[in-house]
């Protein structure tokens, strides 16, 4: 299981949003850090195949990002995602499951499992428009896990979650990282500190650090700031 980013770039006219990012990622949790505008979301979108790189290649076990087989192993939680106000939570998951190519019978079973996992089993029949921000975020996490993804991209997944939910979520991600590649982007450094096996740091579209984080290096936030100082 290997995700290869080979000199991935994205340029908009005069702006280089992502500049020749290369990395080989294997099973585990990867924390993606960077200030606003560093290119994190652009990179994640390119990994998800919803934004075409202007340069470089992205492959998963040799499968190109543009192929359906690539998207079939992908789970994605966007930073700011929408929902269908008139759909119930269960319908929302069943719809997304169909989009992921999961048959109806499997989808029903999986939707129930995931609703329980994100503690929404009692409100599965309720319309999403009645949900709080945190509930919507949990539903978003559930949809990303529908197809048991080998590659899971989470953009600000803990936004809107209360402390208790955040702890549960960290445990979930840690477990998922044993079987798949999880790339997690967040502003909350402590989330990454607790669960990331490796850290990726971005600044001005470039990958300025890629390395293991074992907790022996001290405080990640300090390390993060130090890296920024060194490269500025």
């Amino acid at each position: 299981m290997k995700l290869v980013l080979d000199r991935v770039s994205k340029q908009y006219k005069n702006l280089i949003a992502v500049d020749r990012v290369s990395a080989d990622l294997e099973k585990g949790v990867y924390g993606l850090l960077g200030a606003n505008g560093a290119g994190k979301t652009t990179l994640m979108r390119m990994i998800c195949g919803i934004l075409k790189p202007t340069g470089g290649m992205i492959t998963f076990d040799g499968i190109d990002v543009g192929e359906e087989a690539y998207r079939a192993i992908l789970g994605y939680l966007p930073q700011d995602f929408g929902y269908y106000p008139e759909f119930s939570a269960k319908d929302f998951l069943l719809y997304l499951a169909a989009l992921k190519g999961i048959t109806k019978a499997q989808a029903k079973r999986k939707a129930e499992e995931l609703l329980e996992l994100v503690s929404l089993q009692d409100v599965g029949h309720k319309k999403v428009k009645t949900f709080s921000g945190g509930m919507k975020q949990r539903l978003g996490i559930a949809q990303a896990l529908l197809n048991a993804p080998k590659l899971l991209i989470l953009d600000e997944p803990t936004a809107g979650l209360d402390p208790k939910e955040r702890v549960r979520f960290r445990e979930l991600i840690e477990n998922l990282g044993k079987e798949s590649i999880v790339i997690l982007s967040t502003h909350i450094v402590s989330d990454i500190e607790h669960i990331a096996d490796e850290v990726l740091m971005m600044k001005a579209g470039q990958l300025i650090y890629h390395g293991k984080w074992d907790g022996m290096k001290g405080d990640l936030e300090e390390f993060y700031l130090k890296q920024f100082e060194e490269t500025s």
Partner: peptide, 17 residues
């Protein structure tokens, strides 16, 4: 889908394109 921002989940799914 673009206005609601559901397009991201649709287009990144296997059958979404």
């Amino acid at each position: 889908e673009h206005v609601r921002r559901t397009d991201q989940m649709i287009l990144s799914s296997a059958k979404g394109k």
